[in-house]
Design a protein around this nucleic acid. Structure first.
Length: 285
DNA sequence: AAATCTCCCTGTAGGC
DNA sequence: TGCCTACAGGGAGATT
């Protein structure tokens, strides 16, 4: 399930294949994704200027507007040099690039596959930040704007569990369930801890661990859980190193205590009762 | 305003 | 073996 590191990996993997190329068509075989896919005629021959990431969106900047792609929980992109093989199950969208010159050099298809169809593709001709999906997003977790002070500012008067707060995309983007669990363990903070009770020191520790965990995952090429495939078709290898996520009932890797499982906002949550005390927080590892 | 719940979808795992 | 159900997840939108 792509989280921020996987999306970043995808954008980086795809960019070299399509940047500077002009689309010749977009084949939408399955328009019924998270939102109906509707790409106007003019966008289908756009020229790709840049591919990058904002939150968990892959953004394609073109000469006439932006494509806004979300991978949902099972989406992936693959670059297929011409002649591209026939589409298979769940291959919903093809971005078709013909050769910029007479020979076949550079021709190919950027193919979007998404078994669970939680992903989405939008076209936006206007100002990117005004698109409804992007307008209310919080800061990037790896930016300097995401600091202990910044997080502390959002805890004021909030009874919500700290885990819910760091997963709130209006506060900070890109912190999905896996990395929220991991960062809280590493910071020694119990996920159920009320946001308003977070000290500045705890906020600073948590922010630092979020940056560490996400940064590591990006460098490792993203976590592979079940069906994620990176932009270059190669999977990442990070899941063996997860400390708490998916390990309910197993021994804490730090103190051997069986890990506790709870649900917070209907999301699977795992923590160590010993390493993540109910009050305050333990010094980070 | 803030907190909580529902829904979209399908592959997979676990129980019987 | 095969059927059934629960679960996984992002995040907008509805509801409380």
């Amino acid at each position: 399930m792509p989280e921020l590191p996987e999306v970043e990996t995808t954008a980086r993997g795809v960019a070299p294949h399509v940047t500077g190329k002009r689309l010749t068509a977009i084949d939408v075989r399955q328009p019924s994704l998270r939102w109906p896919v509707e790409i106007p005629e003019g966008a289908q021959t756009a020229s790709i200027r840049q591919v990058y990431r904002r939150a968990k969106y892959v953004l394609f900047k073109t000469d006439v507007g932006h494509f806004i792609l979300h991978l949902g929980m099972s989406g992936s992109l693959r670059w297929l040099p011409a002649p591209a093989p026939a589409p298979q199950k769940h291959d919903h969208i093809d971005f078709v690039f013909a050769s910029p010159s007479q020979d076949a050099e550079g021709a190919g298809v950027l193919r979007y596959n998404d078994p669970r169809r939680f992903g989405s593709l939008h076209w936006h001709a206007g100002v990117l930040d005004e698109h409804f999906l992007l307008a209310r997003l919080g800061v990037e977790p790896l930016s300097d704007a995401f600091s202990g002070d910044y997080l502390k500012g959002y805890t004021r008067g909030r009874k919500t569990p700290i885990k819910s707060l760091i997963m709130d995309s209006h506060v900070v983007v890109g912190v999905g369930n896996i990395y929220a669990n991991e960062a809280l363990f590493r910071a020694g903070i119990r996920p159920t801890h009320r946001a308003a009770r977070m000290t500045l020191a705890a906020c600073e520790a948590l922010v630092a661990e979020i940056k560490t965990v996400l940064g590591w995952a990006i460098n490792r090429g993203g976590t592979t859980l079940r069906d994620f495939v990176g932009g270059d078709g190669k999977p990442g290898y990070f899941q063996q190193e997860l400390l708490v996520y998916g390990r309910e009932g197993e021994a804490c890797r730090r103190c051997e205590e069986p890990l506790q499982g709870v649900r917070i906002s209907n999301r699977a949550t795992v923590y160590c009762r010993n390493c993540q005390p109910a009050s305050g927080f333990r010094a980070p590892r």
